[in-house]
Write a protein that binds this DNA or RNA. Structure first.
Lengths: 167, 167
DNA sequence: GTCCTATAATTGGACGTCCTATGAATGATT
DNA sequence: AATCATTCATAGGACGTCCAATTATAGGAC
């Protein structure tokens, strides 16, 4: 991409925060900014691996959620709540997965307002192949020590719980 | 937003990963997914605070970078490298900040290919007001314990260094 | 049985990000 | 001095996200 900087830009921002009289907010600022940048980094790595499979991470998550379900079929609404994304994002992802033949929309037997998303055989194959690549290229080597990885997940679990994601 | 789930969806995904025979990749998967979700959570909180100021986080970061510089003026290229975003993202952000009268584009005295971005008085005022609100509403209370915040920043610093952000 | 509210999914629009390609200017090589 | 690769910024397009508004259905209150 581009040249490494000689100084950590987030550490520099934190120093500025303290010098400007906001020492209480400095750690939180650094934490928020770090999350933003970490997201950018890991998303880029993940999407680079998924690109040959003609998938994005959002669509990959939908495929995996379906592949973990008993019947390979879930209501749209449930997909959104499990993945914690807005209904419009689900509509968008399912549209594109359907265009690619990886999922189908089916009527919900009990509720005509709802729709079921069903994984196709092709969708299951693509999900498996993409997972093999993702595990090898990213998830097995996320760029952190095992201890750091565990620590990160633990801290972010607190954050997510505090934000009301789960009880 | 929506109801809390009874189970942590990321912990559930991690169990699925182990059951499907990918135990080595399970922690990394959880770490990556946690970062994605944490990003969504903190970005939503930040943008809710910035909305009354008619700012987004991307534009706010540009304003703060300029306000920390000696002259309130930086080359476009340098803004992109410091914030670690694509040149097109800088063009986009500066376009909108300029429309709002918060920055100006000026010619670079030594290099006619380059442009300088200059903070206006109005831009400085908006940046200060937005920072006051952000510090109070988000950065002072990021949703993590002080120890967790420090731990998070430490771990993500390793991640960023490993990704080549800085030396 | 009708009305009235709540819910499910979609549409259209805004925004930020990245990618690819382009126009302009720089600096080095010849 | 002329050429050529590099660099800077921008344009156009794709994608995911959110928001606000819309349509259709469900289920309760009366």
């Amino acid at each position: 991409m581009s040249e490494p900087l000689s100084l950590d830009p987030i550490a520099e921002a934190e120093r500025h925060w303290r010098r400007h009289g906001w020492p209480d907010a400095a750690p939180g600022m650094a934490a928020v900014t770090s999350i933003m940048r970490a997201h950018q980094i890991v998303l880029a790595r993940v999407e680079a691996v998924l690109r040959p499979h003609r998938l994005t991470f959002a669509r990959y998550e939908v495929l995996m959620l379906l592949s973990f379900s008993r019947t390979g079929t879930l209501p749209m609404k449930l997909v959104g709540s499990r993945l914690q994304v807005h209904p419009t994002s689900v509509t968008n992802a399912v549209d594109r997965l359907q265009d690619a033949g990886l999922v189908r929309r089916e009527p919900h037997p009990d509720d005509a307002r709802s729709l079921l998303v069903a994984l196709t055989d092709s969708g299951r194959d693509v999900a498996r192949a993409a997972t093999t690549d993702l595990n090898a290229a990213v998830f097995s080597q996320p760029g952190l020590s095992p201890a750091g990885t565990a620590e990160l997940v633990r801290v972010l679990t607190d954050l997510r719980r505090g934000a009301g994601d789960f009880t």
